[in-house]
């Protein structure tokens, strides 16, 4: 009976150790900005990284047939072209903060995972709008 609990404690400690030294250690910097990446390019060469920034307005191209999403990621200083295979997430739009997981190939950042950041500010749509109208508005905006 006690052996079972001790085994459990060991598993928990192991998981904690893994999270602290493996997961958390690597993730203390969750994402790099494009300028940080470009400054220290040699270090991240051929490594999978996360890049975070804003989707530059006017650069989004989505090929529906080949499921290729192209856009430029910017932090206001440096810019990085991104190619992501797959459909854009629901809240993806121009000017939105995103985090892309992937690696560089031939000058283009090949995203394998696209995460959309959203702000902590919640606002209701304008006065007098019914939920149905809002739903339509949201659907049209996508």
């Amino acid at each position: 009976m006690r052996g079972k609990y001790l085994l459990g404690i060991l598993v928990i400690l192991g998981a904690l150790g893994y999270m602290v030294f493996g997961g958390l250690g690597r993730n203390l910097v969750y994402f790099l900005t494009p300028s940080e990446y470009l400054q220290d390019q040699a270090r991240y060469q051929n490594r999978s990284v996360r890049l975070g920034g804003l989707v530059k307005p006017g650069t989004v191209q989505y090929d529906k047939d080949r499921l290729e999403l192209r856009f430029v990621l910017t932090d206001g200083v440096a810019e990085v072209p991104v190619l992501h295979k797959g459909t854009p997430p629901g809240m993806f739009k121009e000017g939105q903060g995103v985090v892309v997981e992937g690696r560089f190939q031939e000058g283009v950042f090949q995203g394998t995972n696209l995460l959309v950041k959203h702000s902590e500010a919640y606002q209701a749509p304008k006065e007098g709008w019914t939920p149905e109208e809002v739903r339509k508005l949201i659907e049209e905006a996508q």
């Binding site: 928990i12 904690l16 999270m19 958390l24 993730n27 997430p89 809240m91 995972n113």
Partner: peptide
Amino acid sequence: RPTWGVYWTWEPRLTTTAILFAVYLG
């Protein structure tokens, strides 16, 4: 899942909360 696009990612809030949960499991 519907907002960020994934159920889970090892970002700071999620990682620290997972650790918090594991500590009280312990």
